[in-house]
Design a binder for these strands. Structure first.
Lengths: 112, 112
DNA sequence: TTTACATACATAATTTTCTTAGGTATATAT
DNA sequence: ATATATACCTAAGAAAATTATGTATGTAAA
C-alpha cells in the first residue's frame, strides 16, 4: 500500500478509465479490480468510492442500472459519451503529469 | 497548469527532492524553480507551501537560516540527514507509484 | 508619482477530498 | 455461532489544498 497522500486526486481518473474499458461495473467490483491490477498496492476505500460514484452520476458522466442478484442489490455503473470524453482527457492529463513529475524528481524515464 | 486534484499529495515530495539536490533554498525560490522546471505546469501556491515548510521543519527534516537581504527577510531551508533519507524514500515510493499508475491507466511506459 | 508587478514572508477561512467508523443485509465456510 | 466475503450506504472528522488577505520592500513603466 502506498501512503494515502499519493493516491489523492487519482480516484476519479481510475474509475473513469476502468469504466471506459468495460461495458459496466459495480462499486465492489471496482475495488476488487483495482486491488487485483495493482497487486494490492492501491485499495479503494468504500467511503471514498461511493460518494465519488454518486457525484459522477450526478454530473452525467456515469449512468446506473440496479440489478437484483439473488436477494442482494447490485448497482452497475456505465460510462456516458460525455464520460468517455472526460475519461480520455483525465488519462491524457495524468500521462502528461507523470512525465512532468518524472523529470522534476529526476527519475529514469523507463526502468523496471 | 494541471487540474488542482492531480498535484495533491506531491508537495512534500517535490520540496524534499529539490532541497535534497541543493545546499539551501528559500520558499519563494522553490516556487520559481518548480515553475521553471515544469514550464509553468506546476505552480506551488504560497498558502500550501509555507505551512508545509513549517511542518517539515517542526518534524526535523528541514532546518532554517534567516538572512537579511537588503531590508528584506529571506528564510533559507536546508535538508537534515533525516530529511535526506525521507526524500529518498518519498521519491522511490513515487517512482513505484508512477509505474503502477502507468500500468493501471494503460499508458505507454515510455513515450515522448 | 502612482500604478503595477516582482520579491518575500505569513496566516486564516473555506473548500475539497479522503479516512475512519458505523450501519444494513445476504451468503458461505469453519 | 463466528468469521469472512459480498454489496450497498452515510456521517463525523482529519488532512491538504485553495483562496483571500495582510505586511513590506524594490523596481519599472506610464
Amino acid at each position: 500500500m502506498y501512503s494515502s497522500e499519493l493516491i489523492k486526486g487519482t480516484l476519479k481518473t481510475i474509475i473513469l478509465k476502468l469504466l471506459s474499458d468495460s461495458n459496466e461495473m459495480y462499486g465492489y467490483e471496482l475495488t476488487q479490480r483495482v486491488k487485483e491490477l495493482t497487486g494490492g498496492k492501491i485499495q479503494l476505500t468504500e467511503g471514498a468510492l461511493y460518494p465519488t460514484l454518486h457525484a459522477l452520476e450526478a454530473q452525467g458522466v456515469l449512468s446506473t442500472n440496479v440489478v437484483n442478484v439473488g436477494n442482494r442489490i447490485r448497482k452497475y455503473y456505465s460510462i456516458t459519451p460525455t464520460g468517455k470524453q472526460l475519461a480520455n482527457d483525465k488519462v491524457n492529463e495524468y500521462a502528461d503529469f507523470i512525465q512532468t513529475m518524472t523529470f522534476l524528481l529526476g527519475l529514469k524515464p523507463n526502468m523496471g
